[in-house]
Design a protein around this nucleic acid. Sequence first.
DNA 1: ATGCTTGTTGATTGACCAGTCAATCTACCG
DNA 2: CGGTAGATTGACTGGTCAATCAACAAGCAT
Lengths: 214, 214
Amino acid sequence: MGDTEVRGRVDSTSNTVDGGKRERILRAAVKVFAQKGYFGSRVSDIAEEAGIAYGLVYHYFKNKEELLLALFQESWDLLLRRIREVRASPLGAREKLRQIAAFLLKGFRADPERMEVLVVEVIRSSKILKGQTLEMIREAFHLLEEIVEEGKREGVVRKDLDSRLATSILYGALDQIITDWVLGLYPRRRDEEELALEMVDRIILGGMTPPART
Amino acid sequence: MGDTEVRGRVDSTSNTVDGGKRERILRAAVKVFAQKGYFGSRVSDIAEEAGIAYGLVYHYFKNKEELLLALFQESWDLLLRRIREVRASPLGAREKLRQIAAFLLKGFRADPERMEVLVVEVIRSSKILKGQTLEMIREAFHLLEEIVEEGKREGVVRKDLDSRLATSILYGALDQIITDWVLGLYPRRRDEEELALEMVDRIILGGMTPPART
DNA sequence: ATGCTTGTTGATTGACCAGTCAATCTACCG
DNA sequence: CGGTAGATTGACTGGTCAATCAACAAGCAT
């Protein structure tokens, strides 16, 4: 997940030192933020986890907040990409939504700590979210909303639903399932992700489809 | 909402001074936390908002964290009470779930700042949530789960659903809707709460009911 | 009155930590 | 080489703020 190397130096000339330090810092930040939360984490913790000197963090990032923002943008961008990709695919609307749900739920298995930071630290911090960031969230929701609209046109989604609220309901359900996992509220079963996906499909996607003609 | 007076002195003898200072502090904390977030709030902000001296906060609460905890417990206790009340009522399972959903969504209208702190700040501090607190969350979820089980027995909920996940899906949807409102992601419409309730009912509660016999 | 308990005050303390900076190092270039 | 530009280091600083505390007030009991 997220192996896009973004170097200190943008042009590919010179620079043999560095060795992807920026990436190292980001990965360390994910780990530390996930463990202690954003405010509970010291920049020195991150530096230590990354195995670099304290000051170097400030060579790559303006400050602690930028670090969290970069983290969010990188991860959310991945989600956005996937949503766009699915949206453009020739699948039916319901299957599209299912694919996106799967991406989020599987994403947790792939990189739980990153998901924890995303879900727990970033999305809820309206005080941190700035224009750029809010815009990315809005866009994801907007794209999902369009898929719901598409579903209405296809006849697989009830026309008496508010697409925006339907989108929030779907996203919220997924977010909560991941939060449950993060908080360790319940013992995880094997195939937990598959089961969760199935339940979301049955309840929410099922709940969106028009009632069978009688 | 939440007018249960809890005095510094527990027994009702003596104590004519005080004048509900503890309550004042709690209400001030709700306001300040909602505005600036837990970590962004200074204890002095809360004291100021409450119109009392800095040190007095520490007369009523062990520390800043206890304040957040007390806030959470007070509010969550209200939710728990309501869930128990509804659960014990003679309503059908689907109507029970609807009532609880309504309580949460209307609760936002009644005291948006309190809901904001609950939804945004508390979950975020999974690192702060201690045994006692986690237990309360678990209990609420457990009660909801039992109502879902009840629905299965009544035949208004599909038997092929995992009750626990169904519960998380319902709660998550509600939580997200409130989060949307808190973040101001969308312009609020009039009757937003009613519409939201209706959508949750159609999609999720509807999605839980067994498919019509063909 | 006298003393005890609880309430109330706000200045002070002490810890903590984000961010800076001057120094050193590494690589590359002409 | 000698020079330049970025990379890397970690000690230090300055500000912030949670928590303490000593002093004073208010109510109550005897």
